[in-house]
């Protein structure tokens, strides 16, 4: 367990020291969200209606940008080979790396989302729920993303392939993330979608590392 936390700390430290990756994801998020009104027109009523959807889609795309970072660098410099022979099972290695990705990408994106909501005239009542759903949904994004990153670790045109593989798997997270916001803003309260979103995140947090480890094992033999 100690080495599990050590691995997370190491990944966090690396992410902070490099810095650029988080900044790029946040900048991408900002640019995609601000392009939306330019494409759809500045009608504030329309923007308020689609704000949750736009924020979630932009968040997924921004997270996607940084997914291939999860394993690639460690594979290239041989760290992953060392980790594979170490005492920590690969399942926990994958879990640690996915968790580090969530902390360095998921949380900053979730925190930035309500600020960008201002640009889209998002209903003020929806703010706390938006933060809650993005925080609740982004673990699924990171852990499913880790599976995709492990599968495409050795491929050369990995980025596009990763998007093709992972985006269809994000559909449940997207649907329940958005429906929780729209249900929460209305009189009905949070509703079931919030709980289902939590369930999806839990399932992916448990199953994602298993699949990612299986994929890593194939390639590290």
């Amino acid at each position: 367990m100690k080495s599990f936390w050590a691995l997370i700390l190491r990944d966090l430290r690396l992410a902070v020291r490099e810095g650029g990756a988080i900044g790029t994801a946040l900048g991408f998020f900002l640019v995609v969200v601000s392009l939306m009104p330019l494409g759809l027109g500045p009608d504030l009523n329309l923007l308020a209606r689609i704000a949750a959807g736009v924020l979630w889609i932009a968040l997924l795309l921004a997270a996607l940008l940084s997914l291939n970072r999860i394993f690639e660098a460690d594979y290239e410099d041989g760290t992953l080979d060392v980790l594979a022979t170490g005492p920590l099972p690969l399942e926990l290695v994958s879990a640690a790396k996915a968790l580090a990705h969530w902390i360095t990408t998921g949380i900053p994106l979730a925190v930035l989302a309500p600020i960008l909501g201002i640009l889209l005239n998002l209903d003020l009542n929806a703010y706390p729920i938006l933060v809650a759903t993005t925080l609740l949904g982004t673990p699924a994004v990171s852990f499913l993303g880790a599976v995709g990153a492990a599968l495409t670790m050795k491929t050369r045109r990995g980025g596009l392939l990763l998007a093709l593989i992972v985006l269809p798997l994000y559909v449940p997270t997207l649907i329940f993330g958005i429906s929780a916001v729209s249900a929460g803003a209305g009189p009905g309260g949070l509703g079931a979608s919030f709980l289902i979103l939590a369930a999806i995140s839990l399932v992916t947090v448990v199953l994602g590392p298993v699949a990612a480890a299986a994929a890593l094992r194939v390639q590290l033999q």
Binding site: V147, L151, I165, P168, L169, V171, P172, I175, F176, S179, S193, I196, I200, V203, L207, A211, A214, A215, V218, Q219
Partner: peptide, 24 residues
Amino acid sequence: KLTAVLALVGVSLLPIIKFSVDWW
């Protein structure tokens, strides 16, 4: 083996995807 892993991930998520699309 990698496509096999992906196929199994896909088939285990398929019910959730189907359910979420119906809900949506």
